[in-house]
C-alpha cells in the first residue's frame, strides 16, 4: 500500500468516525461498522449484503417522509406528462385486508434488491446488475431503454425516464431513455451513510425502517431478523429480496 493510499484510508476512517458520531444522533439509522469501511480505490466487498427491515406496525398511514427524502436526495421531480410517466423510486402502499377486520397497513415499497434479481436475468446488455454488496443497480452507460426489466420486476419498482432531465444531483446521474430504480442511496453508502429514506423515517420519529448489513451477525438488522418474524414480499418467487417486512 502506498503512502498516499494509507493517508487516504486514515482520512476516510476519520471521516467515517465523524459521520458515525453524527448519525448516532439520528435514531433508526444504523451505520456500517468501521471494520467494513472502505478506502478509496478499494472495491465493494461481497462479504457485505445491504438490506432493510421495515416494521409495518410503526409505519404511519399518510406519512410519506421517506418518499420526500428520496426525492430530495436523488433529485426526483414529477414529470411534465401523466403521473404514470413520472419516476417513483419509493412509494407508499396502503393495504386493506379483504377479509375479517379489514386490517389496514401502510408500508414503503421500493427496489427489493433481490439476491436473484429477475431484472438482471432479463437485461440484454448487462446494464442491470447486482453489485458485490447486494445492491441492484442500472448502469445507465449501457442501458438501451428496452424496458424488459420493468416487465420482469415483480415489485414494479422500476421507472423509465420519459423526458430530458436538467436538475440532477451531481452525485446521482439520471437521464432520458434509461430505466432507473432505488439504489439504496448508493452514493451515501459509499461514504458511510445509510439511505435517505431511512434517515427521514428516523427523524419523523416512526423508526419503521432499519438499514444494515444482513451478513453481519453482530449488526442490529441481523439480530432483529433472527428474533422477530419478518416476511419477504412475493416470497413464492424465491428471489431472496434484501428488503424484509415485519408485521404483514
Amino acid at each position: 500500500m502506498s503512502e498516499e493510499q494509507k493517508t487516504g484510508r486514515r482520512a476516510f476512517i476519520a471521516a467515517s468516525v465523524g459521520a458515525a458520531g453524527f448519525v448516532a444522533l439520528a435514531p433508526g439509522v444504523k451505520l456500517m461498522d468501521l471494520a467494513q469501511a472502505r478506502a478509496p480505490g478499494e472495491s465493494v466487498s461481497g462479504k457485505v449484503r445491504w438490506g432493510m427491515l421495515i416494521d409495518t406496525t410503526k409505519c404511519a398511514t399518510g406519512c410519506s417522509d421517506c418518499v420526500a427524502a428520496c426525492a430530495t436526495e436523488n433529485a426526483i421531480e414529477p414529470g411534465s406528462g401523466r403521473p404514470a410517466q413520472s419516476s417513483q423510486w419509493i412509494r407508499k402502499i396502503e393495504l386493506k385486508e379483504k377479509t375479517g377486520g379489514h386490517r389496514e397497513l401502510s408500508l414503503p415499497m421500493m427496489c427489493q434488491h433481490c439476491a436473484n434479481p429477475p431484472c438482471v436475468d432479463v437485461c440484454p446488455t448487462g446494464a442491470s446488475f447486482k453489485r458485490a454488496d447486494g445492491i441492484v443497480l442500472v448502469d445507465r452507460h449501457i442501458c438501451i431503454g428496452c424496458r424488459y426489466c420493468m416487465m420482469a420486476c415483480p415489485y414494479q419498482a422500476r421507472s423509465f425516464v420519459h423526458e430530458p432531465l436538467h436538475h440532477q444531483n451531481p452525485e446521482v446521474p439520471r437521464g432520458q431513455g434509461c430505466v432507473e430504480a432505488c439504489t439504496f442511496c448508493v452514493q451515501r453508502i459509499d461514504r458511510g451513510q445509510g439511505p435517505a429514506c431511512v434517515e427521514a423515517c428516523g427523524k419523523s420519529g416512526h423508526e419503521a425502517m432499519l438499514f444494515g448489513d444482513l451478513n453481519d451477525p453482530g449488526g442490529e438488522i441481523a439480530k432483529r431478523i433472527s428474533t422477530v418474524a419478518s416476511s419477504q414480499v412475493r416470497a413464492d418467487l424465491r428471489l431472496d429480496p434484501g428488503v424484509r417486512y415485519q408485521g404483514i
Binding site: V67, I93, E94, E97, K98, Q156
Partner: peptide, 15 residues
Amino acid sequence: LDLFPGFAASSSFFD
C-alpha cells in the same frame, strides 16, 4: 401485479 395477496392495495404508483 398482486404484491400482497389477500389485501386491497392502493398507491401513488397505481398499485
